[in-house]
Structure formats: C-alpha cells, structure tokens
C-alpha cells in the first residue's frame, strides 16, 4: 500500500476524518498550555517588560505564514507531476490559512513595534517581506476564485505558485538589499528572537507546535470541505449534461 493511495479523495476523507479530532485536540492543548505558560509563568524581559509576551503569537504565526506557502508549493508540485486532485485542493485550502497567519504576524508585529520602536510600521526588510508575501497570497486566492473549471484553476494556480515562490525569494533578497542600501548601518535591531533565553524559549516551542497543529487541523478541515464542494460541483455538472 503506497502513500499515494491517500491521494484518492475517498481514502483521504476516511483517514482525515479519523485524524482530525486528535489533531484539533492536540492543537488546542498545545496552544492553551503554551500561551498560559508564556503569558503568566515567564518573567518579564528586563528591557521590554510585559510587551515581550506577544512573541508567543508573533513568532509561531510568522513561522506558519512561510511554511504554509512552502506546503502550497509542495502540493502544487505534486499536482503538476502526479495530478492528484486532493493535492491541488489542499493547496487551495492552505492559502487562506496562510494568509491569516501572515496578517496575524503583521498585526502582532505592529502592536509589538509600537512600544518598542515607537512606530507601528517600519520598512524593515523582514516586515516588508511579509507584506509582499501577503500580496502573493491575495493573488493566488484571487486566481483560484476567478477560474470556473476546477482543473484549469488547479493547473494555473500551481504554475503561479511556482513562479510566485521564485519571485517571493527574489523579493526577499531585493528588499534586504534595498533597505541596507537606504540606511547604511541601521542601529535598530529587529531580531528579537535571536537572543531569547531558555525561559522564553520552551513555552515558545510549545506555542509553535500548537500553531503547526492548528494549521494542520484547519487545512485538513478545509481540504475535506473543498473535496465535498468539488464533488457537488461534479454531480451538478453531470446532471446538467444528462
């Protein structure tokens, strides 16, 4: 029995139906433990005070914002190469989740940035990259919505995802270059997580696990919905043709 058999919609529905409650429960548990631990049982940072605690939302969201696009890229490649419909639908399902993660990362970043740097927004390379990533998500989802034929939509969005990935990486480097070019020797360090102490690190790890599981649960749920929507569409099309 090969792994690819789960690419069959029916098998996928059966398996994901069994797995989904566990993943959801585990996600909830991790998030509750991680956030409560992080918010109430860690010391305040000697420089940043209590504001540092937004890290437990900010960093996991940012992590998933990027990994969700990566997952879409892998799913798109599987669709192009092996043409498993579930794979294309999973990519479609992941896009809005990834977009919301990007928004969470941007908003929590702004809220964190206000007391720290005295500004809601700075054209820092990292922030700007996320804004561009957000635009890529928007375009990807808009293309899915615009095309009637689901197979054509899957084909076109897969190619867009591929080309978009290349340009997202290019943009990342371009933005890094651009801002260094503007502010030689910037004095503001925005890499807060690079010198995180263990006390903050462990609850953060739990939160990240929680976000990964939450993402997985949401994508599974949405993929199941997409499969059913697709089936309804196919049945309707068949009845029209009959």
């Amino acid at each position: 029995m090969s792994l690819w058999e789960y690419a069959n919609p029916k098998k996928f529905l059966a398996l994901s139906g069994k797995v989904l409650p566990w993943v959801s429960g585990l996600a909830l548990a991790c998030l509750v433990i991680g956030l409560v631990w992080g918010f109430f049982f860690t010391p305040e940072d000697y420089r940043q005070g209590a504001t540092v605690k937004i890290i437990y939302l900010h960093v996991p969201a940012a992590l998933m914002a990027i990994n969700s696009w990566l997952m879409m890229l892998v799913a798109s490649l599987i669709w192009i190469v092996r043409r498993h419909h579930v794979s294309a639908l999973a990519a479609k399902a992941a896009a809005p989740v990834g977009m919301v993660m990007t928004v969470i990362a941007l908003v929590t970043g702004a809220i964190w940035g206000q007391p720290m740097w005295g500004t809601w927004w700075a054209w820092d390379p990292r922030l700007t990259s996320f804004l561009i990533l957000f635009l890529f998500y928007l375009g990807y989802m808009a293309l899915w919505d615009a095309i009637e034929n689901p197979d054509t939509a899957a084909d076109l969005t897969s190619i867009l995802c591929l080309v978009g990935s290349v340009f997202a990486v290019l943009s990342r480097y371009a933005v890094l270059f651009w801002n260094q070019g503007l502010h030689q020797g910037a004095s503001l360090s925005m890499d807060a997580e690079e010198n995180v102490a263990d006390v903050f690190w462990y609850p953060l790890l739990v939160c990240m696990a929680g976000f990964v599981l939450l993402f997985l649960a949401l994508v599974l749920l949405r993929t199941r919905t997409e499969i059913r929507a697709r089936r309804i569409k196919a049945i309707l099309a068949r009845e029209r043709a009959a």
Binding site: I132, A142, L160, V163, L170, Y173, V175, F177
Partner: peptide, 17 residues
C-alpha cells in the same frame, strides 16, 4: 484587475533594483 493583482508582486524585485 486580477492581472494587476497577479503581476504587481512579481514586479517587486525589478522595481527595487
């Protein structure tokens, strides 16, 4: 409109450099 939405993010590196 969709075309603009799809193409503009791809223009970012070219515009920057």
């Amino acid at each position: 409109l969709l075309l603009s939405l799809l193409v503009l993010p791809l223009y970012v590196p070219t515009l920057i450099f």
